[in-house]
Design a binder for these strands. Structure first.
Length: 293
DNA sequence: CTCATGCCCTGCTGGC
DNA sequence: TGCCAGCAGGGCATGA
């Protein structure tokens, strides 16, 4: 469930509690958590020891921590993706192991540990070289990830052009991380509701002003969620201190099948979509005649 | 190149 | 009470 706002909450926690500290020991308790680190778990652990975690960065749903000697970056980063159920937690040494603890980082200062906990193991950690993309240093494996709506370099006019040349539905496009990143099922549905667009609307039929309106809604719903500390339905998504956000109380459509639309009172509808669900208000977001199903 | 689909994984929920 | 199907879903491989 972690989408952009949830990952940003975690990034801020990492920046506050971990940045500037030197790794003393890395323990990989489940190899699947580092499967994207091709040289293997031992290499992952060995290469981190003695290095400083300098700065926490984010693009879309990806989080990375620049590595360095002292405070200067050395061109490599520890990349994290939370997947469905991943958590980065800051815990005092000696705190009992979480049931799904996958990787533990101990630090030279003897202070709190950084732990990667992941029930479903869709997420993971790996080391990667930083490369320059559009003037920004990003990990090489995520070069193909588009910038997200909260980045200063985000260009809605360029995106509108790309959307209009696509032959797909607006929701598929919103979820395509190579087009725009950070949007998952929750914020796609919420932004579409705010912009009064149906998920099956063909991207090619969107006017430029409508694309601007949609991305204003995307930005707004993400900033609202960020202020609430993110969205969580259970204890799966938490910040580095293990606390849940409360944006789920502000959701207009997601997970609200049968409940009244806060704008018009019509019961919210759930449609199967890509082996998942899409939630819409049937009155505010009527299905277009030329729906791209 | 573009677009769509299936798989990975675990735990919870609801139906019988 | 117990069992099992269905659901949650981001990203990537694969195929059309």
């Amino acid at each position: 469930m972690p989408e952009l706002p949830e990952v940003e909450v975690v990034r801020r926690g990492v920046a506050e509690h971990v940045a500037g500290r030197t790794v003393a020991e890395v323990e990989v308790l489940h190899p699947r958590a580092v499967r994207r680190h091709v040289p293997g778990a031992d290499d992952f652990a060995t290469r981190l020891v003695g290095r400083c975690l300098t700065a926490a960065r984010r693009r879309g749903k990806y989080l990375w921590i620049e590595l360095g000697d002292g405070t200067l970056p050395d061109g490599e980063a520890l990349v994290a993706h939370l997947g469905m159920s991943g958590q980065l937690l800051v815990q005092p040494p000696g705190a009992p192991d979480e049931k799904h603890l996958r990787v533990r980082f101990r630090f030279a200062d003897g202070g709190p540990e950084l732990r990667f906990v992941d029930q479903r193991t869709f997420g993971g950690l790996h080391l990667a070289e930083l490369v320059e993309v559009g003037g920004l240093a990003v990990p090489k494996p995520i070069e193909h990830i588009a910038c997200d709506p909260l980045e200063p370099v985000f260009d809605v006019e360029e995106l509108a052009g790309r959307l209009r040349s696509r032959r797909t539905s607006i929701k598929r496009a919103l979820l395509d991380q190579s087009l725009v990143s950070g949007i998952g099922n929750i914020y796609a549905d919420e932004a579409l509701w705010r912009a009064k667009l149906h998920w099956a609307r063909p991207t090619a039929t969107l006017t430029r002003p409508k694309v601007r309106e949609l991305f204003a809604a995307v930005t707004e719903v993400m900033q609202d969620a960020l202020r609430a500390g993110g969205t969580s339905f259970d204890a799966l998504y938490v910040n580095v201190n293990g606390e849940s956000g409360y944006f789920d109380r502000s959701l207009a459509v997601y997970g609200r099948a049968g409940q009244p639309c806060s704008r018009c009172g019509a019961p919210i509808r759930r449609d199967p979509f890509m082996n998942r669900s899409s939630y819409t208000c049937p009155v505010c977001q009527p299905k277009p005649r030329n729906a791209h199903l």
